[in-house]
Amino acid sequence: MNLDNYDKIEAYLFDLLDEKERATFEAELKKDDKLKAEVNLHRLEQQAIKLQEEQNLRAQFAEWKQEKKSNTEIASEAKVVSMKPTRRSLFYRLSAAASVLLVLSAGTFWWANTTYNNQALADAAFEFSSNDRSNASTATSDFELAEQAFTDGKHKEAIDIYQNIIETNSNPTEVHLAEWNLANVQLAAGNTATAKLSLGRIAEDEAHTYQEAAAELLPKLNSFWRKLTVN
């Protein structure tokens, strides 16, 4: 191997010579068959090494192709279920949906009724008188009688007793209690309009013991859920 020529040949083959150098070298090539053969040998060596590199890459591509193929197979195996429902499965799906809807509806009706019907609202709001009635002006028995009548569902009786307490009692706290419970009994009795009026008056009275309670109860009487109740 002629090492002096090696660098020159490399530079020539890789196009690193300037115009003048290139022309000089090519002139030498025309005259020197040995140099020509050396250049051609060099060319073939370079081509062989380039081919070797490409062979290595092609082997790599073959591996990646296999990997791509495996990934595609996994993806297509995962598609087990058909997207288009059959008529039979559609029927079952619709039946299941209808059943769920029925249960939800029944549940909703039940909840609305136990929460928003007149009796339920009245029971939740009704207040039983305190045991400590040392300052009471109304006989213990009147409040107790009214409360008993309410509990027994004897709404008219309870209304009468509470109206009497309101007319005759001089104790504001007791009057407020009687007014509040009267409104609730009216509600339980189904006299919704009357109950609303009473509660409205209480809610507007800043001095009333049950002003806040009335303000809370009133919107419930206008709630959407009361449309689902049986009163």
Partner: peptide
């Protein structure tokens, strides 16, 4: 590699240019 190329008859014409 050079020896293999030079000894390969089918490449003789390539070497001659």
């Amino acid at each position: 590699l050079r020896d293999l190329i030079q000894q390969e008859p089918q490449l003789a014409d390539f070497l001659k240019g």
